[in-house]
Design a protein around this nucleic acid. Structure first.
Lengths: 257, 257
DNA sequence: ATCTATTTTATCATATATTGATAATTTGGC
DNA sequence: GCCAAATTATCAATATATGATAAAATAGAT
């Protein structure tokens, strides 16, 4: 094994289910001799990517919290989401959750979320969870903004559902792009329905979506138009926020025009 | 440059002030040829530690958000903090902020914070910010729990303030350990006073502190006893929470007895 | 505090991956 | 479709990683 993978493979062993591991466990998992893994771990500890815990265990280190903070403080999308997402959840015509998700490399990840106080369902979209890029309104509203070769490459990196052709899926994305809205039900979470609209900023290279999620049972399609209007106006506000953020930092540490 | 430092040095260039960089900028900063940095960046992008943005800029990637989430979901201290910190802020005898910080390798980092609604001061301790390990009540209440060689090594990794001897500082820590309380003013933020008590769990290898911060102006030392009592009882609850968490996961992916 | 099992670090010859200058290719903006 | 800039590929020289083993340090128990 070579390069960054050597480190990445060790870090990947740490998850919500396995939050601490001994060197022996890591060595077994990555099929490398203990001495090699010790060296790798020592380097990761020195940079704060891992930390040594009690009982010769290791766990994820403070560096992740630190960089996460940097992202929170600098990502215009997240900043704008923190500003508007809760307010949006409060004005929905019925209790629901609001989600801001973004295309990150070739995955879609929720970067901020809020919910009306009385909405108690579990939703898959929570901050930090990578999502399938072709399933659910949230992801599709994002993909609909991507075109040409980049879209092809993205679609190559995932399996489409059985029975759906690449052409058919692209056609669906085209419709979503025209409607500026994607609505799905039961695609990500059973019993939930999602509405999503695109949010983007070209100069910042941000392709995202703003969505809200309701329980399918007590949801009436009559609200659809009103919901779409609310989402569009919030999305507009966020795009304006991002553009202002871009102009504020332009010439400083940001892309030129 | 060799090993993980090659990657770490590039990542370290990204901060709140410089959230996106071109390869040319990185190459200049780390004094390496562009071709080498391109390769490094490519590897980091492949693992989601960086992502390519518009205008040939790169920025921190989704992996940090993902691992941050894993930490939030698994760290018993953070879980307990989320549970109690806001409530604690609400029962303080006067408006203030509450902070949970933890020794992470050889740095102290705030891992959770809350504040009474009417407390409007800026405090340095915010989630994800590394702090000096010898300054402020928060850090000292943590250091007071560390002894022997580990303490020596920690103190070697920092500069003490001028005029303070290593012996004298250790003596102060001893007093804090006996009193189970540290109080400082103007040490971290001007015009603020901080109270901190130790929080720890031996079997989880967690050494932390729970603290609250008030504005010095409208703060009366008469509250000191009451504040200490509130902190101690919250700290006790958190330690119980952590012990339960430890017992729940013991034998699964955690240190043996 | 002393002893002991276990964890962690150090050593070193060999194989392998990294390096960086340059060339070839791709990309994105007009 | 054109052009400048960004990105990737190439390759020989060289520095670094590797892993078996030995030495040292550490933590737990007595």
């Amino acid at each position: 094994m070579a390069g960054f993978d050597r480190y990445s493979n060790v870090l990947r062993l740490f998850s919500a289910d396995q939050s601490s591991l001994t060197v022996a466990q890591m060595a077994k998992a990555v099929r490398l001799p203990t001495s090699t893994v010790y060296r790798t771990v020592r380097e990761l500890v020195a940079s704060g990517f891992l930390e040594s815990a009690a009982g010769s265990y290791f766990r994820l280190g403070p560096t992740f919290i630190e960089y996460n903070r940097t992202i929170n403080q600098t990502d215009p999308l997240i900043l704008s989401g923190d500003e508007h997402l809760q307010q949006l959840a409060d004005v929905l015509p019925q209790p629901g959750a609001t989600v801001l998700a973004r295309l990150y490399g070739n995955q879609v990840m929720c970067v901020a979320d809020a919910r009306s106080p009385s909405f108690r369902h579990d939703t898959s979209f929570q901050r930090g969870v990578p999502m399938p890029i072709t399933r659910g309104a949230t992801s599709r509203a994002i993909l609909a903004q991507v075109r040409g070769k980049r879209l092809d490459r993205l679609l190559l990196s995932t399996e489409l559902e059985s029975g759906v052709s690449r052409q058919g899926f692209k056609q669906e994305l085209k419709q979503i792009r025209r409607a500026r809205l994607s609505v799905t039900r039961n695609e990500v979470d059973q019993g939930l329905v999602g509405y999503a609209v695109p949010v983007s900023n070209r100069s910042l290279g941000i392709e995202a979506s703003l969505s809200c999620i309701f329980s399918d049972i007590d949801h009436s399609p009559d609200w659809a138009t009103e919901i779409a209007e609310i989402l569009w106006s919030s999305a507009k506000r966020m795009e304006d926020d991002m553009q202002h953020a871009f102009e504020r930092i332009a010439g400083n540490s940001k892309p030129p025009s």
